[in-house]
Design a protein around this nucleic acid. Sequence first.
DNA 1: CTGAAAGCGCTTACAG
DNA 2: CTGAAAGCGCTTACAG
Lengths: 341, 341
Amino acid sequence: MRPTVHDVAEAAGVSLATVDRVLNRRAGVRSTTVAKVEAAISRLGYVRDISAANLAKQRIYRLVFIIPDGSNSFMRRLENELEQVKLRSALNRTDITVLKVPAFDGAALARALESIDSKTISGVAVVATESPMVREALARLHRENVHVVTLVSDAPAFKRGDYVGVNNVAAGRTAATLMGRFVGRRPGKLALVAGSMLVRDHVERRMGFEQVITAEFPNLTCLPVVEGRDDAATAREAVAACLSREPEIVGLYNMGAGNRGLIDALSADRAYAELTVIAHELSDHSRRALRDGLFDAVINQDAGHEVRSAVRILQARIDGTAVIDGQESIRIEIYLRDNLP
Amino acid sequence: MRPTVHDVAEAAGVSLATVDRVLNRRAGVRSTTVAKVEAAISRLGYVRDISAANLAKQRIYRLVFIIPDGSNSFMRRLENELEQVKLRSALNRTDITVLKVPAFDGAALARALESIDSKTISGVAVVATESPMVREALARLHRENVHVVTLVSDAPAFKRGDYVGVNNVAAGRTAATLMGRFVGRRPGKLALVAGSMLVRDHVERRMGFEQVITAEFPNLTCLPVVEGRDDAATAREAVAACLSREPEIVGLYNMGAGNRGLIDALSADRAYAELTVIAHELSDHSRRALRDGLFDAVINQDAGHEVRSAVRILQARIDGTAVIDGQESIRIEIYLRDNLP
DNA sequence: CTGAAAGCGCTTACAG
DNA sequence: CTGAAAGCGCTTACAG
């Protein structure tokens, strides 16, 4: 049988209340008493039963998730996964509030972060936009003991939280290797499409992509990045213009959202079916494009995994327990039409 | 506040004990009483707190995992992940016993299954070998209310359990698409290496691989399968012989274990560096081969995910709660040197 | 600075 | 067939 607080209390010659004080590092215990209890704990190999503790405490993990508003389908998928988690959240003594803020808007994000009451909220997960105001707002939460996780897009200047998302430089490199290998040895140009070069993920993916193309596929050259604003109509126009302007294009890499617009542009001319196309994020549209052969590969991150991971990490930080790294590391997934889940 | 058993008891005008009897479908309650309690439950929207129930019951989930013995490094990885889970298992009121049996040996597996005492064990996860004895042993467990999960390798004839693993036909198809695209348009032959054509996973991977090569890459032809017995030395000899016998080989697909032998054979002649090589399962050896450019892609399934998933599913089946499909579906992962975790 | 007693949401003998 | 009381492993006022 595992030892309990009763065993510790008896072994240390103190009461349950005192054991509890030591376990929870509450002030006001004589240091010799603390030592006695700690000795008993390590002698017995006592490990606290967190479920029982949470039951007694009637602890509820109050978490806030802040994600971008708008039509970006990956963000909507994230929101949908959050809804799923909320349905089961009562069972985990977890209460999740979702806040939506305008995309690419540091000031709005900072305001949302400032609105968080550290008295009632114990953890925050946020799709970060980089800005000094955001950084300061995150720092305030950290000072007030609110645990922070950055989700999908990191804020490297803020070092006090966990990041749940992929390494986007590596994701760009992965796309480039697939592109180079799929295109083969013939020479040609590559069209690059991003949402905005102001967003960190897209900048990083581009960097990784160009690194590999330059170093390993000298037959290919990258054209300047076309910005689609993560919006279907804008992306369609931008891609169509680029494709008609540059007849030597052999491949296209969309590192942002707006796959719907991209698909429309590619469907406009049967000659485009020859292009090697690599995009990000699985959705109904990108799945169909893979099945139809319009896309050759999709790089994905699992939104459900990210949401569940962020919740588990916040809970672990709040409880002070360990995080299982293997379980929480988000993979750079490659999908062909053959391995779609 | 969520309603509790006290609220239900009061609303139904009965005692806690009776509420508990109804909740746990214990016999010996008058049907009108059952109806009253069930009405109260649904009226209040009562949901049982499983942690509290497990605390009161002092429930321990006693699980047995049966995996193949031997040098197959994927199986050793599975075993290692099980050790990790066991380290944390006391926290989850879970007790896991690992049984190792000779690989490819249905009789030995059946004996291990027969040794399981259904009085004390409530769930079993097993890397299945197909045989009538195994099927009967699994059926016995099911009859005696032991929940069963097949792990990595399914036993389709036994339909009463969950399968935690990948679709191996799809995995073979995925390998073939990568092979065909990486090789390009030049004609040539493909070497296929398996552990044994008696194992279901390998048969299925081969089927998927050949389907796609035949249908979509007419420039390529698959050579007869070479058996490496999932053993390094045997695999090395078999591959070396095949490569020297067939000068027109442009690609090699290893659908089994034994990557170490494969790597040795490929390292023997610098000309082999030109080959497109696709293998299964990430390990120290296959990672290095990817980094060195000896392997072009590795198809993987996440052993840690599989073990944790099997545990969660067994717990859910024992508790009668829902499983989260998205969380438990095992992905066919593709790794290039760029997206290694 | 420390302890006795009640309580978190369940389940379990035991008694009737 | 049903209920009162104690207990699972913790925490929390409250009293001293």
